[in-house]
Design a protein around this nucleic acid. Sequence first.
DNA 1: CTTTACTTGAGGTACGCTCCTCATTTATTG
DNA 2: CAATAAATGAGGAGCGTACCTCAAGTAAAG
Lengths: 342, 342
Amino acid sequence: MARPTVRDVANEAGVSLATVDRVLNGRAGVREKTVDRVQKAVTKLGYVRDTYAANLARQREYRFAFLLPEGPSQFAETIREALAEAGQAQAADRIAVQVYSIPLNDPHAVVRELRALQVRPLDGVAIMSTETPEVRDAVRRLKAAGVPVVAVVSDLPSSERDHFVGIDSVSAGRTAAFLLGRFVKAAAGKILVVTPSMLSRDSLERRLGFDAVIAADFPEFSVLPTVETHADEERTSAVVARVAATYEDIVGIYSMGAGNGPLLEALRETGLLIACPVIAHELTPVTREALVDGEVDAVIAQHVGHLVRSALRILRAKVDHAAVYEAQERIRIDIVTRENLP
Amino acid sequence: MARPTVRDVANEAGVSLATVDRVLNGRAGVREKTVDRVQKAVTKLGYVRDTYAANLARQREYRFAFLLPEGPSQFAETIREALAEAGQAQAADRIAVQVYSIPLNDPHAVVRELRALQVRPLDGVAIMSTETPEVRDAVRRLKAAGVPVVAVVSDLPSSERDHFVGIDSVSAGRTAAFLLGRFVKAAAGKILVVTPSMLSRDSLERRLGFDAVIAADFPEFSVLPTVETHADEERTSAVVARVAATYEDIVGIYSMGAGNGPLLEALRETGLLIACPVIAHELTPVTREALVDGEVDAVIAQHVGHLVRSALRILRAKVDHAAVYEAQERIRIDIVTRENLP
DNA sequence: CTTTACTTGAGGTACGCTCCTCATTTATTG
DNA sequence: CAATAAATGAGGAGCGTACCTCAAGTAAAG
């Protein structure tokens, strides 16, 4: 009844332990017929390799790199924290994580950083970045070198990343629209949508989902053209002031991206913050405080702890050539309000 | 730089391997002075026991029991599924889970089931149950026998359960109130609250949280006395019909507990379902469908996968006399809408 | 100072697996 | 059919830990 071991498999297949080992680890020099026999024994007995014993024997150390955008992004910061927090568990799982910062606005630096990665021995890479040609090339090179790559938070679909870990941006936008539509008490009016940049795929997709739901379920509201802040404080305050002056019937606000600190400050000045329900993204110190203060009504978030753990699990699975358990790796779209704040 | 092993600790402390082993595993027969020396070496080197190697050597098998309420509860069913789904991972972690059904309405049967538990060798128990005297006694007996017990979903605070795995009911009620208050478009009116039974602690606490938020933030609404369905279909339909006839200004509905199938059916008949926003609990096939159909606007849920995994992790930690990593074990209050349905 | 009880050391075996070597058997080819 | 190549077997060491035994050491009690 106990778990079958390699020994049991060897017996069942009528071969030696060495042969079973060769088959299980894909080593060469075994006739196809024999491979079959062993595999049949494996399935018959329901043998599952004891990964822990295997790793113990193998003295395997998973060396993973996490590439996060440099700079004062609060969200990236919470990911760093989650990574540090997960450190404990990582050590037990023989996972060593190096965190690198990639300077987003300096393509040369990006290339340099990514080149450097290829030199040191590395078993897997997780990247959070917008999809620039440099990043795409780097991912391709890593893949060519046999290093698994997962995209985190923001997908890199046209690179050959192995997996994406994060929420579906279209659904996130739809969720925001649903909540905002339900929260607004006014009978009709305009909805303000703000993002640092519409060049990022995430913003585009969120807007797509947002518009679809507003159009279908809340036709009484019209969504204004997306306001871009370019992650610049002055620009944020200027552009928000202009929009607030132009339209007097703004009834709801959707902040699709980062930079909520300056944005909220600008909104405060215009008085829009008190009048309108606000939906924002990602749970950071700023959005948390805004939730508590009632300035932001709901935050669409992804659990950074899950994000990090999922990325590491997937990288490990890729290294081990094991299957990824998709159901567990799907990141949920968290809705955070003042009352269910974790 | 590599992880320190028992050998390193022995060297550092200037004692033998056997002594280190005695100290680490709390075996008797070591002078206090020596224990200190070893422990100092452990902290100095940052030694962490390799749990996997340890379990391998120990040939440990964690035998856990899950006690779930018998009967056609959809929620308990989803927990069973989550448990089965987790089976894979459990096997790798040397965890064997037995699921038992406890007949809620037959105290004798409960006692019998719980007695039976004590006979078989058992390393830990997770219980989902309301707090009856029988259950309380059983928990006490299990604890006395040295078996860790965690309460799942519904807390058993007056028993000596080691841990509670689930969401905070007061916060859940507050969250429901927040959402409902924001969803209702009417300027004023009454809110209908329904539960199978107000005898359960969960319902009481949810109502508490719900009332607090409505009173504080949405004073334009008044909450009707809780309607009890006693998990009975006919009673549900009768009582809902009566309430609907009595008050014509019901503007929102909060379903605090199980039995959403019959409840929704009854609400459908009264026409309340189309008119009012509805908040319910737990994501089951019924509530999922109701979300998709727009009959229920939001569901307050707890991720059953997390619930199960957390319970197992905690039980394992208790068995190993290891620390529970509280931050990871806090179950989030999920808000599920049509758009972020997992 | 002896007797006794308690502490500690030394060493071995085992867990399930990986990875290595070397010998032996089996199939393939000219 | 011999020479060569390929496939397989047998066995051992090691990963970090647990747990066991037996002997030797040290302290406290009489």
